[in-house]
Nucleic acid binder design. Structure first.
Lengths: 338, 338
DNA sequence: TTGAAAGCGCTAACAT
DNA sequence: ATGTTAGCGCTTTCAA
């Protein structure tokens, strides 16, 4: 059996309160008492029972992170950043995969199973703004992503519209006028696809370039294969274009592959830009221009804000919205004489 | 304050034992009693306090997973599989990133911080066989990966030697004789690089093809960039080759990029095969032949074995070794008239 | 500066 | 079939 406070107290000849004080860095302890306790601790190999501690304190030191799937590179890199941010604040991260499925997402919000955590970072994909009410939960919750806006919780997001606008403007600045889009979602207004498409249209408008709906390639999930399929359809449709905006990097990479198979040179015939700044785009052929959405900043902010909600017992702080700073990253796929 | 067993008992007019029985699906309860309790539960929105439960039962229902980094695609996909396998067994997964750093890995084994878990799935990268003693820990531990063999714990691994041999044989079967390797580790015997290299040499030997050390490209970490760098060095060295075995997919993808920049056609001039069966290789140009190391089987086995160790309090079951079944996946990068 | 003791919410042994 | 009760190991008033 593992040693307990009592064992240590007995060995050190003090009360358990004193041992507890030592463990919790309480200030007013005589140096020699502390010394004796420390020795007993290491002698017995004592380490505190965290279940007991959290039963008592009501805190577990663990936060939950719910994402669609880790095999989607964006979420893997997000999880990486969040675990690092959490570590810096003494928190552990328990990961839950929703598969991007609305029912599964709702279940996580209501289920008592995700309990061993003090709060949740939640990145929905299947839910939409109409489900915002479901975010009214009794535990600390920080929303990530772009599926729901104006909900009842803190929200950390990227500057989707502005950065998509900047991506499009980047292609325009390279003299491109017929810019195809890969990854659009039929009829979506909110959500990464909807917002980024809005940025795309704003950039066109600003440049006085007419919007041509035939340039939009639709897909459902942003998996690699869908970028390829969508691009194949665009090519088959016969519509002309001299640039492609992949609504994320994976889509853009899939599209690039199809373009190259079809004999289009990148960036000469078709310039390409993606979105997310995945590591993968650094080593593709050609390297992929993209938007760095500020992932580290998102992770940092999200963990910080969640921790604030966990510690402050005031419920009356209104929900806040945070937008990370983005950056256009020019690589080979759009490197043209500006 | 959240409702407790006591509150529910009071509301239902029964004792807490009865409520506890209902929650834990104890058999012998009168239907109407159960009914009443259920109603009280949903009325009060009761959900059990897991800290209390685990303090009492000694179980948390959470397992730890320690991997180098989720931004390495292999580990992201592994984590995905493991979370899914754990979910099927009613377990949650807490993820810890070691950065592949030996000191950090050792710390995780000794530190009392990773406590809120019942056991650990551990995939070291910095540790080596000499550190096997450190695996002698007091909590249930299942080792993953190929850094340590013959240690004191259960171990789930891939068939590195055999599958690397099969990968090499695959290239040989396509008539290739000068097979370069990307990702070798200087002097390594155990570890993914060492084992896969051994498989490579065995295949050569079996085919009567002489081993040429000039064909080995060395790298440290298996990041994308290193595959590119290593291939660049091979090209600069002037050594001739008609095929490349990337010791993992990321390396192979990086190498492919450099080959194409250098004007080599794949697979015509150079056939390429990787290792890991990452999703990414399905959409590269050309698509990447690879080894499917049986990730799902690894995840499944690892979680199952860990759970067995957690539940069985017998310490005398000797450590077991499991090897997943692999499969050669032929795609475009090695598609040649066999 | 340290000690005594209550109790966090639950499970399980024991009792009825 | 259901109730009583003793802790699990810890933090935390309250006292000394």
């Amino acid at each position: 059996m593992a040693a307990t406070l009592k064992d240590v107290a007995l060995a050190a000849g003090v009360s358990i309160k004193t041992v507890s004080n030592v463990i919790n860095d309480y200030q007013h302890i005589r140096a020699d008492t502390k010394q004796r306790v420390m020795e007993a601790i290491s002698e017995l190999g004592y380490s505190p029972n965290l279940s007991a501690r959290s039963l008592r304190s009501g805190r577990t030191g663990v936060i939950g992170l719910a994402v669609p799937e880790l095999s989607l590179s964006y979420f893997a890199e997000l999880a990486d950043s969040i675990i690092k941010a959490a570590e810096g604040r003494g928190l552990k991260v328990l990961i839950e995969q929703t598969g991007g499925d609305r029912a599964h997402e709702l279940e996580i919000l209501s289920s008592p199973r995700l309990q061993m955590t003090d709060g949740l970072l939640f990145s929905p994909l299947g839910m939409s703004n109409e489900d915002a009410d479901h975010l009214n939960v009794s535990f600390p919750l920080v929303l990530l992503g772009e599926r729901i806006f104006g909900g009842p919780t803190d929200h950390v997001t990227m500057s989707n519209v502005e950065s998509a606008q900047a991506a499009t403007a980047h292609l325009l600045s390279k003299g491109r006028r017929r810019i195809a889009v890969v990854g659009a979602h039929e009829g979506e207004v909110i959500g990464s696809a909807g917002l980024r498409l809005r940025g795309y249209r704003q950039a066109l408008e600003e440049a006085g370039v007419p919007f041509d709906p035939r340039l939009l390639g639709y897909t459902t999930l942003w998996h690699r294969s869908n970028g390829a399929t969508s691009m194949r359809q665009l090519l088959e449709s016969g519509v002309e274009f001299d640039a492609v905006f992949g609504l994320n990097d994976t889509l853009a990479l899939g599209a690039m592959r199809v373009l190259q198979e079809a004999g289009r040179r990148i960036p000469d015939d078709v310039a390409v830009i993606g979105f997310d700044d995945l590591d993968e785009g650094r080593y593709s052929l050609p390297t992929l221009s993209t938007i760095d959405p500020g992932r580290a900043e998102i992770a940092d902010t999200a963990v910080r804000v969640l921790q604030e909600r966990i510690s402050s017992r005031e419920d009356d702080v209104p929900p806040r919205e945070f937008e990370a700073r983005f950056r256009v990253v020019e690589r080979e796929s759009s490197a043209l004489p500006g």
